[in-house]
Simulated scan of single mutants.
Amino acid sequence: MNDLSIFPADIAEMSVSQLANLPAQQLVEVDTNLDQAIAWLKAARTKLDGALDQRFGAQGRESLRADGRDFGTSHIKADGLHVKFDLPKKVSWDQKKLKILAERIVASGEAIESYLDIKLSISEARYTKWPPALQQQFSDARTVEAGKPSFVISNNSEV
Rank of each mutant, 00 (worst) to 15 (best):
M1E: 07
D3K: 05
L4E: 10
L4N: 03
S5K: 14
P8T: 05
A9M: 09
I11Q: 10
A12Y: 15
S15A: 14
V16C: 11
V16I: 12
L19R: 04
P23L: 05
Q25L: 08
Q25H: 13
L27V: 06
L27F: 03
E29V: 04
D35M: 06
D35H: 14
A37Q: 07
A39Q: 07
W40N: 04
L41R: 09
A43R: 12
R45H: 09
R45K: 15
R45M: 07
T46E: 13
D49L: 06
G50E: 09
D53C: 14
R55K: 14
R55G: 02
F56N: 01
F56C: 03
A58V: 10
Q59G: 01
Q59W: 05
Q59V: 01
G60R: 11
E62C: 08
S63K: 05
L64V: 03
L64S: 04
L64P: 01
D70E: 15
F71W: 08
G72P: 01
T73E: 08
H75V: 13
K77M: 13
K77S: 02
A78C: 12
D79G: 14
G80H: 11
H82C: 07
V83N: 03
V83S: 06
K84R: 15
D86C: 10
L87R: 00
K89N: 07
K89I: 03
K89Y: 05
K90H: 14
W93A: 14
K96C: 01
K99H: 14
I100W: 06
L101Y: 13
E103P: 03
R104P: 01
R104L: 11
I105C: 12
I105T: 15
I105L: 13
V106T: 09
A107Y: 05
S108Y: 06
A111K: 10
A111S: 11
I112N: 02
S114Y: 03
S114I: 04
Y115I: 01
D117E: 15
I118D: 01
K119I: 06
S123H: 04
E124K: 03
R126M: 09
R126Q: 11
K129N: 11
K129S: 09
W130T: 00
W130N: 00
L134Q: 03
Q135A: 02
Q135N: 00
Q136I: 00
Q136N: 04
D140E: 08
D140A: 07
A141Q: 06
A141H: 08
T143N: 07
T143P: 00
T143D: 12
V144E: 15
E145S: 14
E145Y: 12
A146D: 13
S150R: 08
S150Q: 04
F151L: 14
I153L: 06
N155Y: 08
N156D: 15
S157Q: 11
V159D: 05
